[in-house]
Structure formats: C-alpha cells, structure tokens
Nucleic acid binder design. Sequence first.
DNA 1: ACCTGAACACCGTTCAAGT
DNA 2: ACCTGAACACCGTTCAAGT
Lengths: 190, 190
Amino acid sequence: VIELGRSTMRTDAERNRARILEVARELLATSGDAPMHAIAQQAGVGQGTLYRHFPTRDALLLAVYRQDVEELIEAVPALIAAHPPLEALRLWCERLASFGPVKRGVIDALEAATRTDLKSEYHHQLVSAMEAILDAGKASGDVRPDATAEEVLLLVGCLWRVEGADWEARSRHMAGLIVDATRKRSETQA
Amino acid sequence: VIELGRSTMRTDAERNRARILEVARELLATSGDAPMHAIAQQAGVGQGTLYRHFPTRDALLLAVYRQDVEELIEAVPALIAAHPPLEALRLWCERLASFGPVKRGVIDALEAATRTDLKSEYHHQLVSAMEAILDAGKASGDVRPDATAEEVLLLVGCLWRVEGADWEARSRHMAGLIVDATRKRSETQA
DNA sequence: ACCTGAACACCGTTCAAGT
DNA sequence: ACCTGAACACCGTTCAAGT
C-alpha cells in the first residue's frame, strides 16, 4: 500500500498516541523530568507502545512542544506585516516568554534536538523566522546590519530561564534589553 | 581537636582528592557527561572515596570549575579600576567567553548549583560582581539605570552556548550586543 | 580516619510473546 | 499491526567490611 500523509494508523494506535501526548504534556509541565515509565503507566499503555510511537525521550519531548514551536514560527509573518520591525521583535519575545517557566521544557527539547542532529528541522525554521524579522528591520534602518539570527535566538533563549515570582514583568523587561541590543545606534555612538 | 581552616586531612586523602579533581577536569572536558564510576576508576580510587570527597555529582562539577568561577569573580575590581564601565563589561564578557565551548560545563554546574540551593554561594557572588560593574556604569551615566545584574547575567550566560568553528569571533560579537543592551540610550530614542 | 567495591534504586530502551 | 511488560544496560549513590 502507498503511504499517504493521512492516518494509516489503526484507530487504537491513534488513540494511544494522542493519549500519550496528552499525559506527557501534563506530567512534564509539573515535574519536568517525569520518567518514561510513569508516562506510559499514566497513559495506560505498555512501555513498548510508548517507544513505538516515540522512539526516544527527546522525540517525545519535541512532539509535546511541537505545537508551541510551530505556533511561534507561524506567528512571524503576521507580526511583521502588522508592526514595525523592532515592535514585531518585542512582541515575538513576549509571546515566547508568555509560555512561562512551566513550559521551559520547550527550549530544552529544542536544544537537545539541535544538538543531536545539527540540521534539526525546527532549528532551521526558527532561524528563518528570526531572519525575517531582522531583515525587515535592516531594510527599514531600525536594526543594526551586523545582528545575526543565530545570536539573537541565543539571546532570546535566556527568556525561558527567568524564574521567580514576577517572572512575567522581568522577562518583559529583558525582552526590552534584547530589542535594544539589536537596535541600530545613532551616530552619536561612543 | 579544633578544626582549623588548614588541611587536617590525612595525606593519602588529600592526594586522592587532588587526583580526583585532576582526572575529573580531564574527563569532563572531553566527554562532558563522564560517569562517576569512570572518574573513580581513572583516578584509581573506589566509588565510595569519590563520594566521601564530593557528596554528589553536582558538588564535583562545581569543585572542578571552582577555580574558573572564582577567577571570574575576582577579576571584576581590577577591570572596573582600569577601564570605563562599558569597556569593563565587554572585557569581562570576553574573558568569560574565552573559556570556550570546551569548558561549557562551568555554567551548567553553576545553573545546577543555583537550582538546587537557590542561595548558592557563587550565584550571590556573581550577582555582586555584576552589580559592581553596572553600578559603576550607572554612576558614570553610561549604563541604563533599569538594567539589573540578574538579567544581564542571564544574557551573559548565552555566551557559553556559542558553538561552531568561529565561536571565538562570534562570541566576541555577541558580547558587543550585550554591552549595547545595557547602554544608556541617547535622548533620540524612538 | 579513610578506603574499597559489591549492592541498591532508578531510568531509558529493547524484545519475545501475546492479541 | 499493534500491544504488553519482563528484562537489559547503565548510572548515581550507599554501606558493610576492610586497613
């Protein structure tokens, strides 16, 4: 049979997969390092089933946060269209930060994915998204021409690490610092 | 007997401790996640001895990189004395980056230490060191008054993550971005 | 006092046997 | 096809027995 992009999965398999993702998202949000066996048990499946759907721990983590990451990537064009570049960058940072410390696993998963296969699909997409923002800013003269997408992404990655009670206000403030780091400086530079 | 700060350790114990540190530094530089048992074996001691000297893996990591961290902290006063604040910050960033990707374990160890006991001795010292730089810059009017030591430290932490062939030039460039993020902006701000 | 190394607990991953 | 769960390999940590 020819494999279509569609679900050629058996119904029970599909249900299991969905249930695993649901449970994993729940457990990982609270404990962060929930063991695989606990996820399988809570989902009511054997460990083998878990590994059939997600061949490795990192694969599961990435799948759990895939939606968030994709949303982040897809949001970029609209942001660029609706706002001046630096404002778009700031809004994107805040959206990223808004996932909050609870979902800090996203970036860990991404980092892991980036490290294992250096040409990770998502890594490339994230770089492209950031490049779109920066290029718009360079065209309008708001963003310094020497800022690269990779390094700004690295800076933006810090937002996930903000902890504590007022993480929301503090990460917003840090987003401002990052935006200013990419801003083209006036001629009166030191 | 009264415990002095001095070495009341038996000579063999002291030699073991030194040898463990030496071997650990070596192994961790290459593999990064070298197992405890391998370190003990390579050092020629039992696992119990390893744990007698360093009660946990994090403790060992921190001890291995203690020298680097202390050097980083102690370098601050001289930098402030010899350079204008923003230049001091830049030089400090570069010194930090100069440890290179090989020793990336430093920050991992620090992060782990910070997470386990939130009032980690070194975390506090690092914040104080960064505050000294920023305060000097705020006094001279070069640094924006709203920049906090914690957030700048978070940004600086990204420097460790720079990888690839030309990591040296790229981390130097990122240090420039971070310095600009803390710079007080002229009145002609958007 | 300090050292040794077998043993424990735990976790990611695999696989023979089931349906 | 897909599922189950016992089993394997590995790693951090402990502890009874040695010197």
